[in-house]
Design a protein around this nucleic acid. Structure first.
Lengths: 251, 251
DNA sequence: TCCAAGTTTGACCAAATGGTCCAAGTTCGA
DNA sequence: TCGAACTTGGACCATTTGGTCAAACTTGGA
């Protein structure tokens, strides 16, 4: 049988992975934060099946490996081979689950999105401002400690100009952002907060906390410590909270 | 004349560019901040010459182009061809000035280093704390506005784990850092400042200001503005300064 | 004017890399 | 037990890309 004949008899069987626009997928992911299984549930739930389960686990392992590699090397710096190796599978096998490197990258971003967006959404007008802000700082620092790669990945994406994330930023994120700006304004109006500029306060909270993940090398080089050390974590939490709440000027 | 003969008659003439360890070069650069011409002056100064002058200018243009490309795409994402194109020359010509892509990258980093390190070194114990800090914030914001690519390049390098910068971080930078920590401690001890944690204060000042360069896309997506707009620049300066000096709690 | 040194580039090369293909397993369910 | 669908990876391919080379061009200065 010639090669040509073979080609005709057995037409190439593309893996049945849908190829959506990365950006579109991300927006959807951002919208359904905390409701991930919704779509699946709607279109009839078959039993998980032991095989499917194993598949999910492997897929998760791949994403984890990919996160690590992407966060350190970036989309361009990371090679599919390297990720496959980190995941303990062959390159071809990795490509079986994620048709292209970029698709994999989007999947990783998608997975980190809820983690990334969550802390901000947690405070509302009823809360005590000082407490809510302290809680936000704590939540973001915990994230910087336990998932620095997620923070770094998003930082990397921002530095690239956020080609994939921009729709998320100006869509779902902006919605949350605006809502929280309103909350802070209300607090300030009620005199429960000094008259700060709400958007800048939010940026400040993000910057102050993410810094310990994104610039961890620098922090380590200058202080010799990192958030993974309990004492330093606590020290950082206290310092950031004190600074934000009370400022530098002696009272 | 055969090719072989030609080879013998005209042995390859390597460009006279010294190939130093990237990291070592960076440390030296960091140490001689503000004293760039020192070495040159020592080893006998010939007149600049018109050709040499033009060469310098071209070299500067290359560095500028490279900064732009590296800051957006990263070391791996940037192709030598793309940089050459941005500089308006051929790839081979670019490689004539900088023997390897990494060497070019180091040169770019080196060039940004003084800019990067300068603002912190500017305050001393004699200054008024509030003024000195406000000045630092202003200086860093100006830098974020006028040279965001420099900020982004360094951020990128940090996210990579700073393989090239680590010696600078734990050497020259740590020296300045420690000195300024002492200054802040003195201020606090004299009661001129609330009892903040000095290292964390410095991190905070960096994080708060660099954020507007590194995460400019996000800032733009959420507020529609950027530091290049005069009003927004001023607004940001005021907000950050107020937050740092007075905090959130109403007085 | 003339040439040696410096500059520039097109052609080329080898390695790395994203992605394809197919043959060989593996496993679930009937 | 058997086969269809799902997995897996070795071999392979086309492209990109960092870097080399030699030949041609430009120019300052003697």
């Amino acid at each position: 049988m010639t090669d040509a004949a073979a080609k005709i008899v057995k037409p190439p069987r593309k893996p049945a992975v849908k190829r959506a626009s990365g950006a579109r997928k991300l927006v959807k992911a951002a919208q359904s934060v905390g409701d991930i299984k919704a779509a699946e549930a709607l279109e009839g739930h078959r039993a998980p099946g032991p095989r499917e389960r194993a598949g999910e686990a492997r897929k998760a392992a791949i994403l984890k490996a990919a996160l690590g590699v992407f966060a350190r090397l970036g989309l361009d710096g990371a090679s599919v081979e390297a990720i496959a190796q980190a995941a303990g599978i062959s390159k071809a096998n990795l490509l079986y689950y994620h048709p292209t490197k970029e698709a994999l990258y989007v999947a990783v971003l998608e997975q980190g999105l809820s983690l990334w967006l969550a802390p901000l959404s947690r405070f509302s007008e009823g809360d005590d401002p000082a407490e809510a802000i302290a809680a936000l700082i704590d939540a973001k620092l915990v994230l910087s400690r336990d998932h620095p790669e997620v923070s770094r990945l998003f930082a990397l994406e921002m530095l690239r100009g956020a080609p994939l994330l921009k729709p998320v930023l100006s869509g779902p994120l902006k919605a949350v952002f605006d809502a929280k700006v309103a909350v802070i304004e209300a607090w300030a109006a009620a005199g429960r907060l000094a008259p700060v500029d709400p958007p800048h306060l939010i940026f400040a909270l993000w910057a102050l906390t993410q810094h310990y993940a994104d610039f961890a090398v620098q922090v380590r080089a200058l202080t010799g410590k990192s958030l993974s050390e309990k004492r330093f974590m606590e020290e950082t939490r206290a310092a950031v909270t004190a600074l934000v709440l009370d400022g530098l000027r002696p009272r």
